[in-house]
Amino acid sequence: MKRFWILVKKELKYGPIVFKIMTIGFALGYGIGFGIMSKLSDMLYYYMLSFTALLISLIGASNVLTSVGYDKQARTGEMILTTGVTIREYIYSKVLDSIITTVIGVLLFDLVFAISGGKFFKEGINFENILMPILATLVFSVFYGSFAIVFKVASIWHKLLMALFLLSVAVFAVVAMVGSFVKISLINGYKAVLPWTILLLFGMIILETGIRLLRIRDFVAK
């Protein structure tokens, strides 16, 4: 665990700055723009939060993909993985770096969106409005993370297996999202959080399965 946090700290502090700037820029620009335009019906608000989580997580996924790819080509991955670090620690540190950046981005979007649309002043802080985008971000980050890692480094059979997993989860995600939009006016408390929690658990299983398929040679340039 100690090694894992050393890697996470390194990624956060010394990782590619371009992704962090992109995330913050996207969150601010998108938040202000859509906040002013939306008039903030609940339906649109939740839709925009999920959609933004999806898009910003994509930036995070690119970060993981680029970072692993760079480490492979620059042979820094080979150096790190021959210090006694496990593949799990290595991959999760990359994924967590992206998740932390993405969660900050999505919450920033949420805040700017709510302030510029007037919802924040009207309703004050709603815990669900914080928890829901975090969970959505985690779900998409885990999806993209496993997708990116497996497609970057694993064999064709692993890729097919993961594609099937991800397809089924994607269908589940759409169904869950549509369900939550339709029922949005009926939702009280934290019920919007439930489908995202289920998806997160599902996603974690997929990510873990993907990591188990990896071998150190997958991170070594030919």
Partner: peptide, 27 residues
Amino acid sequence: GYLPEGSSVFMNMTLYEYLLFFARLRE
């Protein structure tokens, strides 16, 4: 101690930070 051919370093780190990173990884 393994030094692969043509390996790179983390350019944003100072020498001290770079070595401390590996020292901590190696516990």
